[in-house]
């Protein structure tokens, strides 16, 4: 780690979800820095700036206008500069198709948005403290979808 905090980035077009996300991190009081982008285009513009600091964990919503989460994922995975970013898919749906597509495209974990704030906090704290190297080395289709 370049700093002694975890740099977390979320790209989500939904205002409420962005609110829950930031509030959850506020309440968690972990050593994190959280940046929020309101769609895929904004996110990619920010990442593609050569002097930008790259996030440790990127939370990607799938259903976004203009540039979907899957498109962002493909772009990120095709650029070697982003190879160290852990990518967590963060979506309302958990359809087989979406899970399959994002797994094949190289995402690290798939999170279905919970319907309880306490659950959300638990998920985010788990993901931030996760040993990514260990998780990624044993990654398969069964443990790709985060189960609580």
């Amino acid at each position: 780690m370049r700093e002694n905090y975890t740099y977390v980035v979320l790209a989500d077009d939904d205002e409420d979800d962005r609110l829950f996300f930031t509030e959850a991190f506020d309440e968690l009081k972990m050593k994190t820095k959280v940046d929020i982008y309101k769609d895929g285009v904004d996110l990619m513009n920010a990442l593609n700036q050569s002097e930008s600091t790259l996030p440790n964990i990127l939370f990607l919503d799938l259903n976004m206008p203009m540039k979907s989460g899957l498109e962002c994922l493909t772009e990120i995975k095709s650029n070697p500069r982003f190879k160290d970013i852990a990518i967590a898919i963060y979506s309302t749906s958990a359809s087989e198709e979406d899970i399959e597509d994002t797994f094949v495209s190289g995402a690290n974990i798939y999170i279905k948005k919970p319907n309880d704030f306490k659950v959300l906090k638990k998920i985010l704290s788990d993901v931030v403290t996760m040993n990514w190297q260990y998780h990624t080395s044993g990654l398969n289709k069964d443990n790709f979808l985060l189960r609580l």
Binding site: D14, D16, D17, F20, N63, T92, S93, S95, K113, P114, N115, D116, F117, K118, L120
Partner: peptide, 21 residues
């Protein structure tokens, strides 16, 4: 059904959990 209906419902439920907390 899977996405658009679930989304507002999920938010309602999350807001309820916020209210309760």
């Amino acid at each position: 059904a899977s996405h658009d209906l679930q989304e507002p419902l999920r938010k309602i439920q999350t807001f309820i959990s916020r209210l309760e907390d």
